[in-house]
């Protein structure tokens, strides 16, 4: 009986070991990345639940010192909602129109290449720099007061590139057949964009906007320089210092008492809940509408 000579030799031990070692390292890397996430979430939930009560959600910090128990983040929640709303009102129209320009009108010209490049660069502008810019431009040069609106402007600078990029991607996914069919019916270009292209890409754009909102809702540094601090409720975003949830966490975390630290954790829990909720809803919309999902 003779064995058939195939010429194939088994993989040598050293190569096999190397393969296994690398595989172990890759799995380990993933574990290392997940540990801090679990640690952060666990501590925020554990320490945050202590003060996550009705008083926290309905009271401000007025007349409450660092040592006093009680107090809440109502003023900060109101501030964050208003600031993020106004930031979206500024950033979404500009971002969306820019994306329309890049996809529908720019067609690879010099201006569109410049805009495209600087949108990318703008993504990397540090948040503290956008705050400094609004401080220099709005507060120092124009002499306007610290206000929620100033904070919204700083946040909108951070939002714009995110909105442009995601909207651009979604607009490019709209099949050209739809545009051509519309033109063939004699519909002018701008009505084609408004009535055909934008509705087709609508859910994708909404997802992008919500991810952008989630990104800026947690920003602290720009608010610090433009909204400043207050312990009281200020419902007017156009005049006087406001508070924001991230700012509230930063403020309380800097006070060296246990009650203040507890409030910081609860503020962090509230903030994470808001941001994660926005993220989750955005991803759900994207997943629900994704063509791959519908195909299967």
């Amino acid at each position: 009986m003779t064995t058939v000579q195939t010429g194939i030799q088994p993989i040598s031990t050293s190569r096999r070991v190397k393969d296994r070692v690398v595989q172990a390292l890759v799995y380990l890397a993933f574990a290392i990345a997940v540990v801090p996430l679990l640690s952060v979430l666990w501590l925020v939930v554990k320490n945050g639940l202590a003060r996550f009560d009705l008083e926290f959600l309905t009271h401000s910090m007025r007349n409450i010192g660092a040592r006093d128990a009680g107090g809440g983040a109502y003023h900060a929640i109101i501030g964050t909602l208003e600031q993020v709303l106004f930031a979206s009102l500024i950033a979404v129209p500009i971002g969306l129109l820019t994306a329309v320009y890049l996809v529908e009108y720019g067609s690879g010209g010099r201006l569109s290449r410049w805009i495209s490049f600087f949108v990318d660069v703008m993504t990397g502008v540090p948040s503290v720099v956008s705050g400094l810019f609004v401080l220099a431009f709005w507060v120092l040069a124009l002499g306007m007061p610290f206000s929620g609106f100033a904070g919204a402007m700083a946040l909108s600078i951070l939002m714009m590139p995110v909105v442009v990029r995601s909207a651009e991607e979604m607009l490019r996914l709209v099949p050209n057949d739809l545009r051509e069919a519309s033109y063939a019916l004699g519909v002018p270009k701008w009505r084609t964009i408004v009535k055909v292209v934008l509705p087709t890409a609508f859910t994708g754009i909404v997802t992008g906007v919500m991810l952008a909102v989630a990104r800026v809702a947690g920003e602290t540094a720009p608010l610090l320089l433009t909204v400043f601090f207050t312990d009281s409720i200020n419902n007017n975003p156009f005049n006087g210092p406001q508070m924001g949830l991230p700012l509230y966490v930063f403020d309380q975390a800097g006070r060296p008492t246990d009650t203040a630290i507890d409030r910081a954790w609860t503020g962090a829990l509230t903030l994470i809940l808001i941001v994660m909720l926005l993220n989750l809803v955005a991803r759900l919309i994207a997943w629900w509408r994704s063509p791959a999902k519908r195909g299967s």
């Binding site: 947690g218 602290t220 991230p246 975390a253």
Partner: peptide, 14 residues
């Protein structure tokens, strides 16, 4: 998605 101030708090406290 975790805001940077939360990492700061986690860093200081833990």
């Amino acid at each position: 998605a975790v805001p940077s101030v939360v990492y700061g708090l986690w860093g200081v406290a833990f």
